[in-house]
Design a protein around this nucleic acid. Structure first.
Lengths: 222, 222
DNA sequence: TAGATTGTTAATCGATTAACAATC
DNA sequence: TAGATTGTTAATCGATTAACAATC
């Protein structure tokens, strides 16, 4: 139960947004009630794991029936702290940063992008979507004005640590780093790192290879 | 030892590209030898974990000395199957797809993007970087021509499953899905899914909150 | 009631980490 | 040799899953 102050295990926390996405799709399709086995199928996970994950939030299902879609949606949103909108800033407006800034998926899910920052003279002042890129020197005032707590870092690797330090100094407490380098943050700051090329390198290991001396790791479907 | 055909644990596989990135940075800085504790520090992981991960590849360190940077780089590349370039296709050239297509980081790390596909009349024919967007109807021939085995899916959610099925039918065996929906693949196909907004929702849980009835989960640094 | 499905238990599995013998 | 660091052991920790009593 959330009221107990018990932590939800990290592996469960990482799956809750996935369930949320599936629930929202069910809701959009007019489905009112869903069983753990059906929701697990949609999310691509084991049904027992899903029930275990949900049990950390409390008992919101009905035995013999399932979960009420709208109710469970709200409980997961509450647990994740998605009750209110969280303004987000983006630092580094190269190709990826521009795409992230124009990407509607953040605002749709409670994370409106409110400000963009760069230092390049040819990028500062550029209009991207509804926003104009500000100079990184103006960070502190703008972050304070919007009460932004979350930053997306999409700078080159060699700038990422300094930018991270600076946004934290300006009041940011959640950092999503897309720069291909490890950044360090102190306690009290939440951090996730996404490296797009790294994902392809992980996939490479599982790619069936016949040319190598190693046995094929996955068989093609029968 | 890789020659034994023993599988490297999934958690270790997911970290090997991270070590690789750190090693390449060390190499660029002219560092010839590195200890597990230094490399672990750069990668942001525990040193014992790093040594355990590397032990699955074989014994490539020297006690009392450390690891030779170039040698270890090659061993990790070999283990991941990064010996040769892997041509990649991108399907769905919206904001994100365009950014991924222009993103130099893939080609730099052995994954040159060789073809782009969409179905929208205003996108097919568009030049993005060095490439022109092809129609998805021409998928099979182009995949065969480039011998592409890896696909990046950046379509809307409602198209992702059909696109995934089609690229697999065309010969793709590794799929990196950015569409915000779960896609299912059969055996013999490797799959990873990245949902950008989902990362922000996970961060939200760990964001210190004083307004909630729940205790703050992380303290601000002392 | 009978059928269905949750919430939880307990067993298993896999990942992490400190410690240290091996050894350069 | 003495100091340093790997590779591995073993203990611990956390995650997964099948099974089923509880119960709608």
């Amino acid at each position: 139960m959330a009221e107990d102050g018990l932590q939800v295990p990290a592996a469960s926390v990482a799956r809750l947004p996935l369930y949320l996405r599936c629930l929202e799709e069910l809701c959009a399709n007019g489905v009112a009630t869903v069983s753990s086995s059906r929701l697990a199928e949609l999310a691509g996970v084991n049904a027992a794991k899903l029930r275990k994950d949900l049990s950390h939030l409390g008992s919101y299902g009905t035995r013999g029936v399932g979960y009420e879609v709208i109710n469970l949606t709200h409980e997961i949103q509450r647990e994740l702290g998605l009750d209110e909108q969280s303004p987000v800033i983006v630092v580094g407006l190269g190709n990826l940063g521009q795409a992230l800034a124009k990407h509607g998926g953040f605002g749709d899910r409670g994370f409106p992008i409110v400000a963009l920052f760069d230092v390049q003279p040819d990028i500062v002042g550029m209009q991207i979507g509804d926003l104009v890129v500000a100079h990184f020197d103006d960070l502190a005032g703008i972050v304070a004005h919007y009460k932004a707590r979350t930053a997306i870092i999409s700078t080159p690797a060699d700038a990422a640590q300094q930018v991270t330090d600076d946004v934290i100094a300006a009041g940011i407490t959640s950092v999503l780093n897309f720069a291909p380098t490890v950044v360090q943050v102190g306690e009290g700051v939440a951090l996730r790192q996404v490296d797009l090329a790294l994902e392809l390198q992980i996939l490479s290991y599982y790619q069936p290879r016949s040319d190598s001396e190693r046995d094929t790791k996955l068989r093609l479907s029968v």
